[in-house]
Design a protein around this nucleic acid. Structure first.
Lengths: 340, 340
DNA sequence: TGACTTTATGCAATCGTTTGCAATATAGAC
DNA sequence: GTCTATATTGCAAACGATTGCATAAAGTCA
């Protein structure tokens, strides 16, 4: 087949009317401007020719693209899959399509990606990449590009965001451990340059002090298993009376598990462990991970809808949506056992 | 700031030349057509105005979009994250941007998505969704849209594809089990409407008969843990002398694990288990899963590059790339133990 | 100096839609 | 039968870039 894609002009010629009439007849909102019989003739002709409007052309005229850029720091990190899923779902419902970019963590590389997206004339941007004080955000604001942050927020209040309540998440984790009887609790923090790293650390300390406890904290410089193992190693080697660890993230928690294993420590018998995110498959690891569940898919959906709304209304209101996390108790936490 | 995006015309006015000269000066390939001093004046002016070419406009003229549609059956399935990562990486290197659509498994819903992509005028399509005989493929061919299949292929030879060698994968799995001493081996097949389901089943049977063995096969109707558990349940309840199971996919294998657990059977002591894909985190489940590793990221990269090549050259050659899988032996397989 | 090539630039059409304005026709009012 | 309101439609200019063709200026050579 491979017909060369029908245009409005061809329909116009075939029906003997002017292109502008065709355009109006095919636009539901302008449909009433053209006579009924003409409109139906146009409609059937369009159908016959297999007409698909060329949005490139329309959008050039209208100054839009119906495209939204989605910047992820690391597509391979399992938490981003559900976020992206939610974004894709909600965007397509709003008539937008997501362009995804796996932009890494470096600000400069991210800006390169955004420049490409800018030349594609994306209508807006969803950032899952930001650090606490991110160059990229300013870059987008300068260019008047509607932006929304998802999963991570920034310290300054410049753009809307959809995140989880990190403080509450850590409180759930700590309260659970304390309730089980733990007192010597450590925290493997995420990179403190990210909001999740910093806010969860703060949340940990706040929750601990609420119980009159002081916890040890060790920062992992990236959200990876290896970094988690290394941080946990320092923690365990530095103080051997730690009975529980709360990690800032499941990937870090898996690293903690590795560190425990190499030291011959059992989880939860010797050390209890709580993760954060409840990313896919956390129920099948050994032991099944107790963790703080975040509705990532919903997070993506909300962010996409807010951005679409923002673009359509042109509003500049800076709204922050904070989702309530939930503790999921599985096998990696137990009461502290007297050591042999 | 929010300057309203500089255009070629503004640069032309500012430098006192014609827009066409600006266009030429800014295009590396046409750069030699304009005098050096003029070109540098234009370049600095463009820089000063923060000019970003409007690809919408250029592409309208050029009849392209630099956009590639990527259709996934299920973004939440962890195998697709690395594939998508590879695609995104390679596409951006080729100057394309991926539009991802989480299109589900229904052919009709997928076609709806493709129609949207078509109206965005995507230059090509990467399909990770196809079934053995897929309507969608014909649909795209009819419209002359360059297409490439990734991960799953179709029975007919209509379009290029990048897949893993499913036959070899199953041979690796079966040979490993036989070598350990297993004789009563069963297979939990994936949906036979997908190439991976059908070819891996065939591969299983071929590998078994090569050893003079006949295996039991049970099909799971979808690639999910639940379906895997159900299929394994039938297998285990039907014949209690099975000592090993090869699953068509890791998700199914996890389901098998569930089924074993509910029946009080241990893995690998009572039943050995081999998965397929080596998706993320398969080394931390309990027991760590022996599985057939597929380089998904590389698969995505190759597919993206092939599609880009195909679009640029306009060639219609139908090439099939088959990647060699690799067996990863972990803790879920062992020699068969005499049952108590 | 005249004929001829080379180099640098401008002109204008084009890609496919959308939309303000103008033009025509038809109906309704008196 | 004239006049105004209303309903349809056409016209043409956008949107921002690209490019074949024409043109003008400069350089080459005898």
């Amino acid at each position: 087949m491979n017909r060369p894609a029908a245009t409005i002009k061809q329909i116009a010629d075939a029906t003997g009317v002017h292109p502008s009439t065709v355009s109006r007849a095919l636009d539901p909102k302008k449909r009433h401007l053209v006579a009924d019989d003409v409109a139906t003739r146009i409609a059937t002709q369009a159908e016959a020719l297999g007409y698909r409007p060329n949005r490139l052309a329309a959008n050039l005229r209208l100054g839009r693209s119906d495209l939204i850029g989605v910047l992820l720091p690391d597509i391979a990190n399992p938490v981003f899959a559900p976020i992206l899923g939610g974004i894709a779902e909600a965007l397509s419902a709003e008539g937008y399509a997501p362009i995804v970019a796996d932009a890494g963590n470096s600000s400069c590389q991210q800006i390169t990606f955004v420049e490409t997206l800018l030349s594609q004339r994306v209508d807006g941007l969803i950032l899952a990449t930001v650090s606490q004080d991110d160059e990229l955000v300013g870059f987008c604001i300068d260019r008047g590009l509607p932006v929304i942050l998802v999963n991570r927020s920034e310290a300054r209040d410049r753009v809307p965001s959809v995140v989880s309540d990190d403080d509450m998440g850590m409180r759930l984790a700590v309260d659970h451990l304390v309730e089980l009887g733990h007192r010597r609790i450590a925290h493997v923090a995420g990179p403190l340059s990210t909001s999740t790293g910093a806010l969860r650390r703060d949340g940990f300390e706040r929750a601990m002090s609420r119980h009159g406890l002081i916890g040890v904290v060790r920062e992992a410089t990236v959200y990876t298993r290896e970094a988690g193992a290394e941080a946990a190693g320092h923690l365990l080697d530095g103080a051997d009376d730690i009975t529980a660890i709360a990690a800032a993230n499941d990937l870090l928690a898996l690293g903690v598990l590795d560190a425990l294993k190499t030291r011959g420590l059992r989880c939860p018998e010797d050390v209890s462990l709580v993760g954060h995110n409840d990313m896919p498959l956390m129920d099948v690891v050994s032991p099944p991970l107790t963790t703080v569940r975040i509705e990532h898919r919903e997070m993506g959906r909300i962010a996409a809808r807010m951005l679409a709304e923002r673009i359509k209304s042109g509003s500049a209101e800076i709204r922050h949506v904070v989702l309530r996390p939930e503790l999921v108790v599985r096998g990696s936490t137990d009461r502290p056992q007297p050591r042999a």
